Each structure stands twice: as C-alpha cells, then as structure tokens.
Amino acid sequence: MSAQAIRAGIIGTGFWAGYGHIPALRTLPEFEVVAVSARRKESAQQAAEKFGIPHAYEDAHDLIKDPDVDLVAVLPRPRSACRS
C-alpha cells in the first residue's frame, strides 16, 4: 500500500455520517475525508466545518467529479426518515 491516504468523499451528512462514518474514517490512517455533500449547502458546510473537511458541495455530482476524491461513500437517509 502506498503511503498516500485514500481521499474519501461522503454523500450525505445525516446521523450516520456525523456519528459513524466520518469519525471512523478519521481514526484510520489509510483514509482522509476531503469532501462532503448534502442536499442543502448549509448542511454540507456545517459538516465540513465541524470535521475540518476542505470541500463542501450541494450537488453530489460535483463531489464525484472532484479530482481530490478517490473514494465515494453514499449514506442515504434511513427509510423511516423519508416517510411523510
């Protein structure tokens, strides 16, 4: 394995991102979280500020196209949260 970390982008900034995936990836030296995206720009910016992530996107396609991102994790909202 190369000494360079795998640069991860996280799509979705809900509960599982903030309390699970992002903190877990930050503990692993093989990964660096470099971008997040959310449906609302404010949510992406809040998560980026909270975790010191350099890039925040409203459009997931922009995160996917970011040349600084090597790996993308997609964290959809839990199904129960999507019901009206």
Rank of each mutant, 00 (worst) to 15 (best):
L25E: 01
I22K: 03
A81V: 05
A73L: 14
G52H: 05
S43H: 07
I11A: 01
H21K: 06
S37L: 06
I64G: 00
S80G: 04
S43T: 06
Q4S: 15
M1Y: 12
S2Y: 03
S2Q: 11
H21L: 05
I6V: 15
T13Q: 09
P29W: 00
P29K: 12
Y57E: 05
R40D: 14
P76Q: 07
A81L: 12
S84N: 14
G20I: 02
A56E: 06
G18I: 03
K50Q: 11
P67D: 12
R77I: 09
E32S: 13
A56D: 08
V74M: 05
R79Y: 04
R79C: 07
P54V: 02
G14K: 05
R39Y: 08
H55G: 03
A35S: 10
Y57I: 03
D68R: 09
R79H: 01
G20S: 13
L75K: 05
A17M: 04
K65L: 02
A73K: 02
C82P: 00
G20K: 07
F31H: 12
K41M: 14
L71G: 07
K65F: 00
D59L: 10
A3M: 14
E30L: 12
S2K: 05
E58Q: 15
A44F: 09
V69Q: 02
D62W: 00
S43C: 00
W16F: 12
V69T: 07
I64Q: 04
A24M: 12
E32A: 14
G20D: 08
D62A: 15
R7F: 05
G12E: 03
L75N: 05
A17I: 03
V33S: 02
L63R: 04
P67Q: 04
R26G: 00
G20C: 11
D66V: 03
I53Y: 03
R40L: 14
Q45D: 15
E58D: 10
G52W: 03
P23T: 06
P78N: 15
V74F: 11
G12Q: 04
E49R: 15
